[in-house]
Design a protein around this nucleic acid. Sequence first.
RNA 1: GCGGGCGUGGCGAAAUUGGUAGACGUGCUAGACUUAGGAUCUAGUGCUUAACGGCGUGGGGGUUCGAGUCCCUCCGCCCGCACCA
Length: 938
Amino acid sequence: MFGEESEQSDLYSVSRVTHIIYRPDNLSLAAIKILGMQYQFRDIEKKWKKIWEENHTYRVNNDFSRPKCYVLDMFPYPSGAGLHVGHPLGYIASDIYARYKRLKGFNVLHPMGFDAFGLPAEQYAIETGQHPAVTTEKNIARYREQLDNIGFSFDWERSVKTSDASYYRWTQWIFLQLYNAWYNPVNQKAEPIQTLRDQLGAEATEVELMKYRLAYRAESYVNWCEALGTVLANDEVVNGVSERGGHPVEKKLLSQWFLRITAFADRLLTGLETVDFPESLKEMQRNWIGKSEGAEVLFSLKEKTETLSAIKVYTTRPDTIFGVSFMVLAPEHEWVAQITTPAQREEVQAYQHMVSSRSERDRMAETKNVSGCFTGAYAIHPFTGVEIPIWIADYVLMGYGTGAIMAVPAGDARDYALATKFQLPIPAIFEGKDISEKPYEEKDIRYCDSDFLNGMNYAEGVSRILTEIERRTLGTRKVNYRMRDAGFSRQRYWGEPFPVLYSSDGQPQALSESELPLELPYLESYSAGPNGKGPLANAIDWGKVSKEGQMFTRETDTMPGYAGSSWYYLRYMDPQNQDEFCARSVSDYWKQVDVYVGGAEHAVGHLLYSRMWCKALYDLGYIGFDEPYRKLINQGMIQGNSRLVYRIQGTNTFVSQGLKQNYQTDTLYTEYSFCNGYELDVEKFKQWKSEYRDAEFVLENGKYICGGFVEKMSKRLFNVVNPDDIIAQYGADTFRMYEMFLGPLEVSKPWDTNGIEGVHRFLKKLWRLYADETQGLCIQDEEPTQDEYKILHKCIRKIEQDTESFSMNTAVSQFMITVNELTALQCHKRKVLAPLAILLAAYAPHISEELWQLCEQEGSVLNAAFPVFDEQYVRENAFTYPIAVNGKTRTEFSFALDAEVADIEQQVLGMELVQKWMEGKPLKKMIFIKGKMINLVV
RNA sequence: GCGGGCGUGGCGAAAUUGGUAGACGUGCUAGACUUAGGAUCUAGUGCUUAACGGCGUGGGGGUUCGAGUCCCUCCGCCCGCACCA
């Protein structure tokens, strides 16, 4: 029987954590009691903040003897707007998890830093007219202050800023490693460029090597954004406009640095199977990588030219080759000029001009209408020998496959559309499928009019045709990826300078490691340089370097925002290291990030790039793992709850929402903070803006009721809620618990200030279990009853389960239930309340510490161990009623804890009834809940 | 169009993963204590019915002793991708 062995102390005093986080030598217990017997959250939080800071409570040691846990948040851009209540949501969840794991005895790495380089910081600096270095520092200070308010357990001594030279020195260093490496397709890994030199022999030129380097320079069409004056990566362009600011983006041919991420495409794909990411995010990455398997097939030209004898197409449906009735090239394809007949030249050029003059956006909008133009040239079908006209059309993209396709109108919607529009033949090749209205794109087919494929199904057809194509050397199997190499140059000031020099002939030359960091020069003006160059081009002196008697110029572009964030999780492990980006022995200890919490918007940007960097560093032997994040959680957004008022047109009179249909009104935004729910505080509103000072109001039931809806939290919409205000009013502990209570972490939900009262009330109620407002401490030393232990253990189990699974919302509910139950029993017993204080440590750390002291426990709650859930007790009290044991039972001991004592008589009665009903069939097991039969196993 | 996810009270949401649907919190309604209360406490609160009861997890169908949960189908919403051959 539980409770008789006097082992209760083990429930909470097991100190498996060896290092002492805090010992309150400097505080007498008497002094603590005087703090007041009301829940004085301001004093409590101030006090513990100070103690934690003075004692470096959250300092993390690289103590290799202990099991590790790495809990990471996506670090923020320190923007000028500061934090709103939505930003810390994920941080709170990860902090709870980190604190919980610490109580469980893990050495927990839980750092925070700042992604200080990049476009947003520079744009903000431009807007405010200050130097980015200044605004960044200022913004960071503000972020830091706001974050500290919330009571996070970050080890700030490990903090990184991507814009610090001591940090970007290593960003540049990794860039050089990528530059000095290539992807060996035979070994399927990145290797030092030397192994390529060995293969190519002594005559390998720099130009040739550049075609293999993982960081390489090439001339290519890139996304050029005129308004931002810079190149953007594919993931920074959304629907044809820039992600930042929504400016138009066009294709421009430029010489740029790229990362050869495509070399890792297959591993980025297969690696997804080894990590615990949300399925939707994995799917996004799979789509972005866009692997497709097919074949490249050669179609000889009828009229061969000097340089071109055949058109190479890429297809994923080689099985439909007998349905080819024409071919299509991308309009900008270099072959077009070579094959176009004189008769068609004018028409083709007009079409090419039309296509190239359209913006990305126009082109996207035009997806419904097909257009195209005949080149006059013909190819020969490799199997039938039939002549096939060659067209150009803009639905064929230069950047994918070979930029040329074989058109099968019977099986492809776009080919079908073009064929219909220009009355090209649509050969039927699928038995019994009607293609008079639309093509047939499904794969449940049998072929007809397809020579040796006739009668086969899809699987047989594909296999046969591929064999045949390769046997006749008409082409090869080919895997294609939609993903492109990542543009790595930005014509910007606020980023990492490239550690390269250019000789007079334009050849890049890497700086040596001893020359790092190449510091970003301080510029007075960071406006764009000449000829579409970045601001660094204005730093004339900086840009010229004399070395060993030769003149060099520096790269004036900088690295993109994602450079620094691609490896920061490694720097946290060993942030002070002057000699390496991270010592191998240290990264071998911390290894992967165990839990990474952040927004889904980084799905195809940061998360792909950092996975690629990780793989490259792994291949080159710098780290011992090739996936950076073991588990990823996407927290939802907290949305704004906008409030609207209705002004009668042409007046300064505002009418309550319920009455507005009687008037002609304009709808205006008002501050969310002026409202209690939907009720407007009229006085606050009047004082808001001078134009409202004399405003009048038409009320309903004496109240002004606002309209409202949910949208993005933004200053512009007056729906921003600052965590500082909430914390000033309710305290950090209430704020933390409320954000968790709002709903599941992954789900987006609107902020609602009203609901916070309930959580605050809970903490006050909790406090009253320990201390009475009038009579002071009320903790008792009596032995708890069985019921009281039940309540505690139910809570231990639930908090443990919920915290492990990031279901913080139900964990908070459980705390409320527990406190309600203990209050009802008027339980003030130390042996229940002390472990309860520990259970709360992860969620509401300040009050947890305070309550622990009220229990007159030595040391810090953060040094205690998580209470142990007593399985034995629960097993012995299971209320299942086995008739016979056979196989699986649905009843676990977990259910039994909640059950009231089952009424045995009722069970026996139920059993008799069931046996009657079963008419003698063998009954092996019955399962009861509270005396009611609910399941039998037969 | 393709892919992923979702649909439960006035609202945010629970539901031991197939086992008493709506825990917990808000909101609302009473009441207690109060000079007062935006403090605190107690009770009630899915719909319907005077009551017994009946009906309830987007609609319809199915599997099962039993379905919010599994299957089929329709409807609605959200997110991602979108001429990728």
